[in-house]
């Protein structure tokens, strides 16, 4: 794709073309897809996840490194996946695995103004952790699923960066003139990262809640389904992280999220505390950023 010719006014490819391009290059590592599938299947157990992960030794090693970090407070050193799964649970190990895998997408490339892949990755991890924290504090059982939704909600952006790079740069440039990121996307590309992300999520068979988060995190009122809670968590986390400076594209502008607050029965203190604790949480999981 390259950086060349972003000023050229060639017509952007259609959404389908972009999808096709992505397909050719099969961006997401197979192991991540496999892990996703295993985790989706309610009949699968620890042994299945272990089996899938063992195919990628490097991945397993990274996951184990994370597990042994202070973030999880294991008393003894955990040396194999079985132990890890027994200690942290299937979902959490899944999440670690997917995080480790997806991080591959964000490697390399220089910054474009305030945007950088590294920064985008930080945003994704932060939103994931924040959303998880939020879910835990609201006593939502599926907090690990919420993490995944938070982690992957902006996947559309990195895909745009990779596959329609020239036009992506134009979008970033246009941000200086104002408007939100999705608005500029739609203007220049004809679609935004939620639409692209949503289609990819379908293709790659992400869990339902993750797909919802990707598709509707800028437009929650458009969604009427059963994963509303997850969506709200992701929304709130997105805003909090952005305001804290962990921005997606370098712009510190957050959607307000009144319905989310109401729906989650959040008080100001809740948010405040969360915002404060977020820094610490991010520090604890620092390994994930470099993962």
């Amino acid at each position: 794709m390259g950086n060349a010719g972003f000023l050229a006014a060639e017509a952007p490819p259609t959404l389908d073309r972009v999808l096709a391009r992505i397909d050719e290059i099969s961006t997401l590592p197979q192991v991540a897809l496999n892990v996703m599938e295993v985790a989706n299947d309610p009949r699968s157990g620890a042994a299945d996840l272990k089996e899938v992960m063992e195919t990628d030794a490097a991945l397993s090693a990274r996951v184990l490194r994370c597990v042994n970090s202070s973030a999880y407070g294991a008393r003894e050193r955990i040396t194999n996946l079985q132990q890890a799964i027994a200690y942290l649970g299937l979902k959490q190990i899944r999440n670690l695995a997917i995080t480790a895998s997806v991080s591959e997408l964000f490697r390399g490339a220089d910054a474009i103004g305030n945007y950088s892949r590294k920064g985008l990755w930080r945003h994704c991890v932060a939103v994931g952790l924040c959303a998880r924290l939020l879910a835990m504090r609201r006593r939502i059982d599926q907090f690990e699923d919420v993490f995944l939704a938070g982690l992957l909600h902006d996947i559309g952006i990195i895909l745009e960066d990779q596959h329609v790079h020239g036009h992506f740069r134009r979008v970033l440039a246009a941000m200086e003139s104002g408007g939100t990121f999705p608005e500029n996307e739609r203007q220049i590309l004809g679609f935004d990262h939620t639409i692209l992300g949503g289609r990819i999520a379908e293709k790659w068979r992400f869990p339902e809640s993750v797909r919802t988060a990707i598709r509707y995190h800028h437009n929650p009122s458009g969604y009427k389904g059963q994963d509303l809670t997850t969506l709200h968590c992701v929304q709130a986390a997105n805003a909090i992280c952005t305001l804290k400076g962990y921005t997606a594209v370098g712009v510190k502008l957050a959607d307000s999220f009144q319905e989310a607050i109401l729906a989650l029965a959040l008080t100001r203190e809740d948010i405040l505390v969360l915002a404060e604790d977020l820094d610490q949480a991010l520090a604890e999981h620092a390994l994930l950023f470099q993962i």
């Binding site: 979902k91 924290l133 203190e269 969360l274």
Partner: peptide, 22 residues
């Protein structure tokens, strides 16, 4: 206090999740 409440919630939910895992 909020934090305390949050921690309790976190704790509970984590415990539940861990119990489920176990």
């Amino acid at each position: 206090q909020t934090r305390l409440r949050h921690m309790k919630n976190e704790h509970q939910v984590l415990r539940a999740s861990q119990a489920a895992a176990i």
